[in-house]
Structure formats: structure tokens, C-alpha cells
Simulated assay, not measured.
Amino acid sequence: MAEGILSLLFLLLVHLIPAIAKPCVVFDVNWNLYAFGVSGGDYNLGAASNWIHGNATRVTGGPPFDGLNTQCYLAQYFNAIYVINADKSNPSDIHIFNPQSKSWTTQKMNAGGANANLIQAILDHDTNVFYGLVNNTLYSANFASLTAASGNPINWDVANTVSTFSVSGYDPVLALAQNHIFFFNVPGSNEGSTYIFVIHFSYFQPQPQPFTPKNGNKFPVAHGKATSFFSPSNNVQEQIAFIPDDGSAVYVLNVQPNTTVQLQGPIVKDSNSDYAASTSELVQLTSSGNLYYLPYNQNNPNSSVQWVPFGVPGFSGPGPTSTSTVTSTGSGTNPTNTVTNKGSASSASLSSNAPGSSTSSKKSGGTLRVAVDGSVALGWFLASVGAITIRALLS
């Protein structure tokens, strides 16, 4: 009864808050960077060599990215990008972007208890199975080899129940390495340690795993963001970047020797940032649309490396090419939009005259200006507080 009432309150909260795109960043297997849901637009920013002086390409046909819990994942074996909770009207849908065909499809889900507004998930590298935590239940959803939606809904099934740590008051932070799920920020745990779920044996390790710092401090028991560095040889991930919400540092966990390296914290301390890692770059997309990257050598980490701002067309960032225009060519429903750099400024505008319309309910023409005003900030605050409160009440 209580859970049903709280679910209704959550839905009410979602509809009272103005539609606010929650952007995310993600790579494809060629390490092209995608930024989705930025000022109503989605972009292929290319490989790292393109970020400073190159052009970005507009991606069309995607979801509105107005969910409160949007999460993006790369299926490395299949070069598919999966997006959870990108449409608040259909929060359980998982959207699939195929970088090869540049097309979006929508996978229907049988959610069961896997509430898309609350779930925190990882995508297992070898099995292509999602695992997501809601309260004390770990759910799984098998995406097999999908590069486009199947004709049938996929179930979120109960995979296991958390038994080795308390989820009371837990705001989950999950990451993947070596086909294990690492749980950060567990109440009552020790600094520099994580609890672990062993995917292939469906087994919660009874004791937390400690990590020994090679430099700096142990990572704190704190909420934050975590993302895994991919292997250039397409093997399982072995290193995880954990960024606490206060942005004080980046901690990279190497799960082979169980050590950590402390790196410089982001320039912008923004707990609503999204992060993605390739094989050699950690990228931050702030909630105001600024982009930064941190070079990282998995074989020889350098704790003195600095974050680099880069002004990608279509973003209001501090980088050198942050004022840009988008001109559209082609016809039909999938025009090509090329972004050309125009120099330096504090904001960016996008102009699109593309014929046809997108099926994503995004703005399709006119001028879009990237900005974060008081209403957006208030919306983020209400969304965060509402989600955290409901998690606490349901736990």
C-alpha cells in the first residue's frame, strides 16, 4: 500500500517538474563520443583527435531525454548503445542506438519491480545482460546481441537479493569490472572498499573488497559517479573511475591488484555531471553542457595529468570553439547536420533548417541556446530530492 502511494507521489513529482533534458555521454566501439540530450539535440563528436578542432554531426530520431534517471551504456561486442529512462512518458523503455546505421529503436520492457526512475544499473561486458539495483533487489535483463529492438518485450527478472550489506538509506553507485559489480557508498562500509556481486556465479561476496592506494588517499564512502575504462582488446574492463559528488578527486580502481590511483578532480564540481570512459580518456559532461576530458594511460597512470576543457559545437563551454552554428543539408527524415566551429564565446547557438521531422518530440528547428537558468536548477534540485526521498522511504 505504502509503496503504491509513494509511486503515485513520484509520478506526480515527475509531472510537476518542467521537462528537463538529462544529458549523457557514451562511446561507440571506434571511440567516437556521443552526447545525447543536450539542448534538445544529440551529437556525434567523433574521436578524441576531433574534439578540439573538428566538427560534430547531429544525430536525429532519438528519445526526448527528459527522464529523471537517464543512463547510457555501450555493448562493446555488438557496437550498440543502450539508454535507460530517456523518455518520462515511457520510463521503462530502453532505447537502442546503432552507430553503424545511425538509427534509433525502442525496446519495450516488462519492468516488474525494476522501477526505471530508481534503478541503478550496469551492462555486463561478456553476457550483454543488464543488472540493476532497486532497494534490496538485483534485477537482470538479457539483451543478447541486440543492435535494434526486438519485437517482444524483455523481462526484468529478479537475479538476487542483497544480503551482505544493508540498503537502508543507500543511494546506489554501481560499476563493472571483470564481470563483477562493485558497490560504492555502502552505509557503514570502510573507506577504500566496495562490496561485490560476482555475476557469473550470481553470488554476493560476503566481505567487502579493500583497495590499497598507490598514491593519495583511500576513496571515501560517499555518493558519486562511477564508470569503467574499456579494454582496447575488447576484453573485460579492469579499471573503474570513481568521482565523488564533491569532485575532490578521481579515484581509479584496478581490480587485478586491488589498488587505486588518485587523479585530479574535475575542474567543475557538479554532482549532476555524467561521465564516460573510453580506453584512454575520461569525459565529463556537466549539467550545463560543458565538456572536459582527462587523459588516462591504463598501463602507466600519471597522477599529475590535468583535465582539458574542449569547446564542442552546440555546447556552452569554456573551450576554444564554443560558439558554433549548425547547418543542415539533405532531405527526408534523416538529414545530415554538420557543425562548423566559429571561434570563442560563452554560449553556443544551433540553427537547423532541416526538412522533415524527428520522431523524438525534440525541437526540430529555429535557434536553440544552451543555458541553465533558475527553473532548470530548481527542477534538478526537486528531481534529486524527490528520488532520494522515495528511495529512502521504500527501503
Score class of each variant (00 low, 15 high):
T164E: 12
P266G: 02
T164P: 03
D171R: 04
V255F: 00
N55T: 13
S361E: 14
Y170L: 13
N44Y: 04
S231A: 12
L368D: 10
G112W: 02
S189E: 08
P309A: 14
T259D: 07
L6Q: 05
T259K: 02
P335R: 06
G113E: 09
F381S: 11
L74E: 01
T359R: 14
Y131W: 07
V59S: 05
N32R: 15
Y82S: 07
S347P: 07
Y195K: 08
Y73E: 03
Q264D: 13
Y170I: 00
D245M: 09
P257I: 09
N110I: 11
D373L: 10
P153I: 08
H223W: 06
G67T: 07
S231W: 04
C72G: 06
G132Q: 01
I52P: 00
V312C: 10
Y293W: 10
Y292R: 04
D246V: 09
L123H: 00
A48C: 06
V326T: 10
G319F: 05
G67P: 02
A159M: 07
P210R: 09
T333Y: 14
S163M: 12
N290K: 15
F65S: 03
Q262Y: 09
D126N: 15
E3D: 15
N155F: 06
N85A: 11
F97S: 01
I94P: 01
F197K: 00
P313I: 03
K22H: 07
T333M: 13
S361D: 15
P64I: 10
P23W: 00
V167D: 01
D126T: 14
S92P: 01
Y170Q: 02
Y251M: 08
F183G: 01
P244R: 05
N300L: 11
S324Y: 06
P18H: 10
Q256W: 11
L13C: 12
A111K: 08
G54M: 09
G169F: 04
A249W: 04
G113I: 13
Y43S: 10
S384D: 12
E281N: 15
Q71P: 06
E281T: 14
T227V: 15
R369F: 11
A56I: 05
L285F: 12
S288K: 08
G356R: 10
F201E: 14
K22L: 09
L282N: 05
G40Q: 07
A80W: 00
E281A: 07
Q298S: 14
